[in-house]
Structures are given as C-alpha cells and as structure tokens.
Amino acid sequence: MSNQTRFQAFLSEAGELSRFAARFFAQCFRPRYEVSEFIRQCYIIGYQSLPLVGLTGFIMGLVLTLQLRPSMVDYGVESQLPAIVGIAIVREIGPVITALIFAGKIGSSIGAELGSMKVTEQIDAMEVSGTNPFKYLVVTRVMAAVCMLPILSVLSDAISLYGAYLGVNVRGATSFHLFWVEVIDSLAFNDVLPAFIKTFFFGFAVGIIGCFKGYNSKKGTEGVGHSANSAVVLSSVVIFILDLLAVQITDLLGFN
C-alpha cells in the first residue's frame, strides 16, 4: 500500500469515527433509555476491572517510590519523597496508567465482543427484535466507560499512594499519618481537578473506539481479532494525544 493510499485510509477512518461519535451524541439523549443494560455494563466495565487496576496501581506506586528514593537521597531531599510521589501519581501517572490498563482490558473486550456479535449476525437479530442495537450496545458501553474510568482512576490513585507508603517504609520509617499529611499538603486543587476531568475524556475515547472497531468489524474471526487489537492500539495512542492536549489546555488556563 502506498503512502498516499495509507493517508487516504487514515482520513477515511478518522471521518468514520467522527461520524460514529456524532451518532452517539445524537442517540444518547433520546429515549428509549437502556438503564438496566447501562448498569450491567457499569458492573462489567467498572467493578470487574477494579482488581487489575488496583494491582497495577499498587505496583506502580511502590516501584515509583523505590526508583525515586536513591536520587532523592543523593540530593538530600528524602523527606520530600511522599510529596513528589503524590504529585506525580495524582497529576499524571495515575490517570494515564489507569486509562492505558483500562484500554487494554475494556477496549479489547468491547472490540472483540461487538465484532463477534457483528459477524454472527447478533446485531442484526437485535434490530429484528425491536431493539436499536446502537443504543443498546454502543451508548450503554460508552456511557459506562465514561462514568467508570474516573472512579477507577481515583481508587487507583489511592491504592497507588498506599503502595508508595510501603515503598517509603522499605528503607525508612514514616508513619501512615505523616505520609498522608505530606501527600495532601503537597496537592492543590489545581493538581486534582484537571487530572480528574481528563479521565472522563479518556473513558470516552476507550469506549467509543472499542465500540467503533467492533461495530464495524469485517467478516470472519480474523476481523474480530483485528478489531480487538486495533481498538487497544488506537485507544492508547488517543489517550496520549488527549493527555498532551489536556496539559496544554490546563497550562493555558493557568492551572499549572
């Protein structure tokens, strides 16, 4: 495939994705509301992702602290370790790593599930059964991803900070109370709010890309695999792009 064809294919897919997102906004506020399916998706997307997100968050906090410690000791600012780790986790690492784990688990799962439903005609069967499949499958999943990722991100931050507390205590002795006072004192409103807001956009990106890839899956099992894979890859890239934009916007608004 020539570069020109690739570029055309990229633009065409970007256009299709934008149209898909516009269709989401057009349908999500109109009845019939699929409340029970939305709650079921929140359970699957949110609750069932918690162990994985919690585990990675814990390891991330612990490892980050252990890696930072020698440099902090060299500069003689070891006492600032809880503050530095706290800012790093809450402002940047927590939301982004959680979103990437979320993209890996949920993006691929949505892409594969909808792709499989598409190739086995289950989506057509839904339409024949008096159901708007876009509303039932896409709107509920995207809404659940938008609502669940911020909650998971907050929980992941908390677990991550607990990991950091253990990391601090591997070679030192800081009380749990003192550690948290140090972390909370170092954080300002400007650190927490933009980081929290961007997770809604990350959730939307993971949900809409997973659904787009699955819903437009080509025929055959190879197509299902491709949908799942490309959903993860594209979601991850979009998360980094959104993060870059979020940093620029918060900087522009004076939040940094």
Partner: peptide, 16 residues
C-alpha cells in the same frame, strides 16, 4: 411489522 415477521438467521444469531 417486524413483530409479525419472524427471521431465522443462517448463523442462528443466538446471544452468547
């Protein structure tokens, strides 16, 4: 209309 017309899909299309 669809409520009066049944459709048996080639792949069965049962919800997994």
């Amino acid at each position: 209309i669809r409520a009066k017309v049944g459709f048996l899909f080639q792949s069965n299309a049962l919800y997994d």
